[in-house]
Design a protein around this nucleic acid. Sequence first.
DNA 1: CCAGTGATGTCCT
DNA 2: GGACATCACTGGT
Length: 195
Amino acid sequence: MHTVPDEDWGWLTVTTELAARRLLGCELERDLDDGERLRVRIVETEAYDQHDEASHAFGGLTPRNAPMFGPAGHLYVYTMHGHHCCNIVTGRVGHGQGALIRAVEPLEGEAIMQRRRGGRHGAQLTNGPGKLCQALDITLALNAHDLTHSPLRVIVRPALPEHHIAVSTRVGITKAAAARRRFLVRDSPYVSRPP
DNA sequence: CCAGTGATGTCCT
DNA sequence: GGACATCACTGGT
């Protein structure tokens, strides 16, 4: 495990669709306040950008969505119906973009996630954007956090072969609902719902 | 100021 | 399949 140099993050600054695809198979490493370490593999993402009516960034910069207009590789956290959801910011500074993390696969610290999730287990631990934030203790305290550093890091893994990636429409939106900007690891049991 | 909305999850019937 | 928790933002009064 090494810190990813800035020059290796170039792919995050291209289109948010490409970044959302490229994040599949990458990992998130979370150091909890009590010193425990959690690690998960990203298996489902959705792409959003400022030209997209479904995006929080549509309509321009506000105090809430400001991290989406900041540097790629930082985190954007928001609350929705009493839950937290998180995006990995993509694109260049000044362009509102991000990849929503919709589902992850537990790799390390599963028992701790289970405790944080009220005793649920298996895919139910992390197969939804609110669920994974609860499992990983991702709250507004981590909003705009730089993901090259503890307590939350992205570990870049080799890009998945194209045939391992499924594409579908995004979940739970009403605007721009036809756009196919949801990306999933094909046949993973840890996705939020089949494509 | 207030009501309505939304990239959700859980519990209830 | 429906109620509801809970909050930033929007649009209307």
